[in-house]
Each structure stands twice: as structure tokens, then as C-alpha cells.
């Protein structure tokens, strides 16, 4: 089965969001090209998830416009699919039944099941279609959530800290899987994370959000082709810059050397 989607571009113009008098996001301008992987990086509570939710239509901007594929986002957007920090699977359905939630509604019944199983195969869970969510590990549940999102064949895949709750090893596997799936499907990806290395490993561009209320503080292009090893020396300077931007400055290996002399 082909998992190729028609990747969609995303455009944010002067986007702001306030909850009552409390302004969270202000004047966000950002253009994301079709097929691009963009990481939204920021400290906890800076509003990066809110920004992601506005692209998916789960939240509405109080000012500015959010466009996907050149069309304004009004309400839940069928061109987007979200993976949340928690798997959020329906406990009474099998894994295949959960994936079916992402399939087109008009699909005949017999096709729903076979397609769900194929999408589970894409995340290497082909043997677990009839398991219930509570019968599988957290990593497998999160992969099911990814399959559910892929089944929607999204133009934009929205990942809201999808690896944050996983253990370190499972997180590395999930990152590889997302990278692989992105390369084969070509979909646009917006990844919300607070992990600098994760952003440098997966993204073409890193958008650092900061300030109060939050705006775009830096946009950095990440050099080199994916899959990337985040220990590459040319990424060290980027990592330092991003960590400094997040308020936790670290010396680069080069600086450490010169300091020691």
C-alpha cells in the first residue's frame, strides 16, 4: 500500500491567542512549505501546543489567520491529523478499531478492517490488530496513535510532543519510525517538542518560541540530510544557540577547548 499523501503548506499570519485577558501567543508569522518538517521548540507552557492545535482546528486564533494549503482553517481540518502526547486510544476498541477512526467515513465495512491492519503494518504492529490498548505497551499504543493519524492521509501531520511520555529507548525507536514514515509519505510535519536534540534530529527547520507573550524568537535551518545524527559537530553550535534561547546556556565542545587553554 502506498502511504503517499499530498503534502500541504501551512501559513500563519499575525496569529495571536488570548485566554480572556491573558495573552499567550502574539504576532506569529510562519510559512511552512509542503513536505517540510518543522519543529516548534519552546519552554513548557509557552503556547507551542496551542499553536499546533490552531493549525489542526482544535483551537481558534483570536487574531490573525491560519491557512493550510491556502485555505483558512475553520474548525476541525480534514487535511490535518494529530498525534497527542498521550496515545488517547479508545480502550473498548481493538488496535485495528482505533486505527479505523482515522479512515474515511464512507469506506465499506470490509475494507475498513483490512486498511486498518495495513496501517498498523506501517508502524510495525501487524501482529497486534486484535489486541486491546491496555494489552500493549506505551510505545506500541503511541505507534497505534501514529497509525490512526496516518490512516487519515494527512496533508499536515501534527505531532504534539508525541514522544515525551516514552522511555528513552522507545523514544529513539519512535523518532526513527516518524522519520521513516515522513520520508516515505512526504507529508508535512509540525512537531512540538521541548527536546533540542529531537528537533535537530528530525526537523528541516527549528522554530524557537519564546517571550511573554510568546512570539517567534529564532528560526534556524538545520543543515544536512535526514536521518541525522544529532552528535554531528556542525549541529553543536545550533544546539548551544537553541539551549541558550531556552534559558539553559551550555558551552559547545569548541568553546570548552579554548577555555581550557
Amino acid at each position: 500500500m502506498t502511504i503517499t499523501t499530498a503534502p500541504a503548506g501551512v501559513s500563519l499570519r499575525g496569529v495571536g491567542r488570548a485566554f480572556g485577558d491573558h495573552v499567550v501567543l502574539r504576532d506569529i508569522d510562519l510559512d511552512i512549505a509542503p513536505g517540510e518538517v518543522v519543529a516548534l521548540l519552546g519552554a513548557s507552557g509557552c503556547g507551542k501546543s496551542t499553536l499546533l492545535r490552531m493549525v489542526g482546528g482544535l483551537d481558534t486564533a483570536t487574531s490573525g489567520t491560519v491557512r493550510v494549503d491556502g485555505h483558512d482553517v475553520t474548525g476541525i481540518d480534514p487535511r490535518c491529523a494529530v498525534v497527542f502526547q498521550e496515545p488517547r486510544l479508545l480502550p473498548w476498541r481493538t488496535l485495528a478499531g482505533n486505527v479505523a477512526l482515522g479512515l474515511p467515513r464512507d469506506l465499506p465495512r470490509n475494507q475498513r478492517d483490512s486498511e486498518s491492519r495495513q496501517w498498523l503494518g506501517e508502524v510495525e504492529l501487524q501482529g497486534f490488530a486484535d489486541h486491546r490498548p491496555r494489552q500493549v505497551s506505551g510505545g506500541m499504543a503511541q505507534r497505534t496513535a501514529l497509525a490512526r493519524a496516518l490512516a487519515r492521509k494527512p496533508g499536515v501531520l501534527l505531532l504534539d510532543e508525541p514522544f515525551a511520555a516514552l522511555d528513552a529507548l522507545t523514544r529513539l525507536r519512535m523518532q526513527d519510525l516518524v522519520e521513516d514514515v515522513q520520508r516515505r509519505s512526504g507529508t508535512t510535519v509540525i512537531l512540538v517538542t521541548h527536546d533540542v536534540d529531537e528537533a535537530l534530529k528530525l526537523a528541516d527547520r527549528v522554530v524557537l518560541l519564546g517571550g511573554a507573550p510568546t512570539g517567534v524568537s529564532v528560526v534556524l535551518d538545520v543543515p544536512g540530510d535526514r536521518p541525522r545524527d544529532h552528535h554531528q559537530p556542525e549541529l553543536a553550535a545550533l544546539r548551544s544557540e537553541l539551549l541558550a534561547g531556552l534559558g539553559v546556556p551550555r558551552r559547545t565542545p569548541l568553546e570548552r577547548e579554548t577555555h581550557a587553554r
Binding site: E122, Q126, G127, Q135, S137, M140, L177, D180
Partner: peptide
């Protein structure tokens, strides 16, 4: 899972991703 052709590794995930503590009891 690090290999690019991940779809070919049918059934390998049982070994690469340990099922959680709930899996045994659920079976």
C-alpha cells in the same frame, strides 16, 4: 527499526518493543 525498509521486518516488533507489564496479565 533503524533500517530504512522497516515494513519488511514483519513480526519483529514483538522482540524490539517489549510489551508492558499489562500484556501478560491481559493474555
Amino acid at each position: 527499526m533503524t533500517s530504512p525498509g522497516t515494513t519488511g521486518t514483519t513480526g519483529s516488533s514483538e522482540h524490539t518493543d517489549e510489551p508492558g507489564p499489562a500484556a501478560g496479565g491481559a493474555r
